[in-house]
Write a protein that binds this DNA or RNA. Structure first.
Length: 574
RNA sequence: GCACCCGUAGCUCAGUGGAUAGAGCAGCGGAUUUCUAAUCCGCUGGUCGCAGGUUCGACCCCUGCCGGGUGCGCCA
């Protein structure tokens, strides 16, 4: 990719010019903020001049003199206080486009492979998924796809909440209030009803609460009846979850829920006590982080004074499995921001144990209700995920219904692809850390910066090749000129955008930000639409036509690939 | 009380030290005998919460304040 090539050349130029870079500084190249000055720019000299106590423009000149980029750039200039601006040569740009369209990676270099476990979605058993689960599910799926595309070994793991204190209430409810017919009809709704009813009763009556605790203890001690009920709840819930994941096009390599680690918890705690990593405090087993100022007064509890285990215990056992069995080098947790402290503790505990994997809490903001406060899983109502998806499909289908020349079957597929795509894109195009208020209209919008806008750009590329069906060009076998010819600004602008796919994909994993890829694809679609208006393809001639066909072909591939990385499908018509 | 996050156009949001702060929606005005108008072009719209500071340069970094959110041993 051009950015890293230019960065490398710049580094060489600094060496050649005998300018020693202070420890820790490296020259950087970024996309030009203002394309009047060039395609890429480096701001390095201005910052560096201060440290070296020299004139920034003179420094830039010194670097420029030592710089060899004649094969890449048509022009290098020094502007303003000391900006180094690069304008790519048409030959280099053309060569990139011609090569990229013939490879699966579309010009995106692969990374040094690592073994990455992505932990995301992780809904609770016996409760319907609500919109609050969408961020983890969609962001996690996207990050996993991008990492795979870059050549990493990726393991996706759905760490289902299938164990815990809420089962005391469900067990009690199951035994006293279960409506078999309702369970048959809508298992999750019935389980939720049981939970809510018992929860309310337990709040009002201490005796009910005690009964629930007893049911839970029996489950944890392996009582056959309770285990059988629990197993049934888990299976019913998993059936429902798989329906939603199928609709979303999300798949997991593993569904290792919390219960998978039950047998590992007691030995783990004993081991941590024996190695003095954990200690007993006020009857509970804790790990203290006395040498970490931010965690000094925030110990991590791994066993309650009554002997029960906690969230953190399971997470530590899970880490062991991922590192020891899967040989993970990286573990990414796509979990909301409120759990930041928990992950700080878990990661610190793991480091205390000498584990060297790289941990990342990929946090995201909360989805807020109309009151500006978080949707609460436990008490408050929320909006069901399945309702959101169905409504999205319905709205998209209503637009498709007005189209002519499409079969009912095609219309159904298109409505589903666009509806689901719209929901995913609404999520992924946003900075993950920002909280936002849930809005049907925003999440389901079909105009402007949305999935259908991007899909429409793709459809436009396909329409052109459809006209060529039966010819080699229709199959993408365009007789390429030795070099692309740019006669209109829109052609070169499109070629530039296409070349930036490499940077956009890599930037996603830099800071775990799918919205950078979404933004890029939106810009690509906009650039293509402008090209489409300005540059007739089929009616043009010779090298101009071949150039435009090649640009359409690569645009088509990049849009499909990029949307695919977001987990969004494309359609040939809409 | 302590810690973390957020405050940018009427609304929803991009923008994590560089050049004139950008999109979408909403509003107004145009474009279709043409490869899909879920499109394109133009206009309107901002003391970037407030006050200081660092810097050649600050929406961005530092300090204080105001407003909102979240979290802070025996839930997950």
């Amino acid at each position: 990719m051009f950015r890293s090539q230019l960065t490398a050349r710049l580094l060489t130029a600094f060496e050649k010019a005998g300018i020693s870079l202070p420890e820790g500084t490296r020259p950087t190249v970024v996309l030009a903020a203002d394309t009047r000055y060039g395609d890429y720019q480096s701001n390095t000299c201005m910052g560096l001049a201060k440290q070296l106590k020299t004139n920034p423009r003179a420094l830039a000149q010194q670097v420029a003199d030592a710089l060899d980029v004649s094969d890449l750039c048509a022009k290098v200039s020094i502007d303003g206080p000391g900006f180094l601006n690069f304008t790519l040569g048409d030959a280099a740009l053309s060569a990139h486009v011609l090569t990229a369209r013939r490879t699966d990676q579309l010009g995106v270099p692969t990374a040094t492979p690592r073994t990455i476990v992505v932990d995301f979605s992780a809904p609770n058993i016996a409760k319907p998924m609500h919109v609050g689960h969408i961020r983890s599910t969609i962001i996690g799926d996207c990050l996993a796809r991008v990492a795979r595309f870059l050549g990493h070994h990726v393991i996706t793991d759905n760490h289902i909440g299938d164990w815990g204190t809420q089962f005391g209430m469900i067990l009690h409810g199951w035994k006293t209030l279960l409506d078999e017919a309702a369970l048959e009809k809508d298992p999750i709704a019935e389980l939720l009803r049981l939970y809510k009813t018992v929860n309310a009763a337990a709040k009002a009556d201490e005796a009910v609460m005690t009964t629930c605790r007893e049911e839970l203890v029996q489950l944890q001690q392996g009582d056959a009846e309770n285990l059988a009920i629990w197993r049934r709840c888990v299976d019913l819930s998993l059936d429902q979850l798989r329906v939603i994941y199928a609709k979303l096009g999300v798949r997991f390599d593993h569904y290792l829920g919390e219960s998978s680690y039950n047998d590992a918890l007691a030995p783990l705690v004993e081991n941590l006590l024996a190695s003095h990593i954990a200690e007993i405090s006020e009857g509970a087993v804790c790990i203290f982080f006395r040498d970490d100022p931010t965690l000094a007064d925030k110990p991590c509890l791994i066993r309650k004074s009554d002997g029960g285990f906690l969230y953190a215990t399971t997470d530590l056992a899970t880490i062991d499995h991922r590192i020891n069995v899967w040989h993970a080098t990286d573990i990414w947790y796509v979990v909301g921001s409120p759990q930041e402290l928990h992950f700080k503790q878990i990661f610190a505990a793991s480091h205390k144990r000498g584990q060297t994997a790289s941990f990342q809490h990929v946090a995201f903001g909360s989805i807020l209700g109309p009151d500006g406060k978080m949707f609460r899983t436990r008490s408050g109502e929320s909006v069901g995920l399945i309702e959101v998806l169905d409504e999205a499909i319905e709205r998209a289908a209503a637009v498709v219904a007005e189209r002519e020349g499409l079969s009912d079957e095609e219309k159904a597929t298109i409505g589903e692809t666009i509806g689901i795509g719209a929901v995913k894109y609404a999520e992924l195009s946003q900075n993950r850390l920002t909280d936002y208020k849930f809005s049907w209209d925003k999440m389901l919008s079909l105009q402007g910066n949305t999935a259908p806008y991007l899909i429409n750009a793709y459809v436009r590329t396909r329409a052109i090749f459809r006209k060529l069906e039966g010819t080699p060009e229709g199959a993408g076998e365009i007789e390429a000129p030795a070099q692309l010819v740019f006669t209109e600004p829109a052609e070169r602008a499109l070629a530039m955008k296409l070349a930036q796919y490499a940077e956009a994909v890599h930037d996603v994993l830099d800071d775990f930000r799918p919205n950078l890829l979404a933004n890029y694809l939106y810009e690509l679609a906009t650039t293509y639409h402008a090209f489409y208006e300005a540059c007739p393809v089929l009616s043009s001639q010779g090298d101009i036509r071949a150039t435009r066909l090649i640009l359409c072909d690569l645009t088509s591939q990049v849009l499909k690939s990029g949307l695919g990385l977001l987990g969004i499908q494309t359609t040939e018509r809409m």
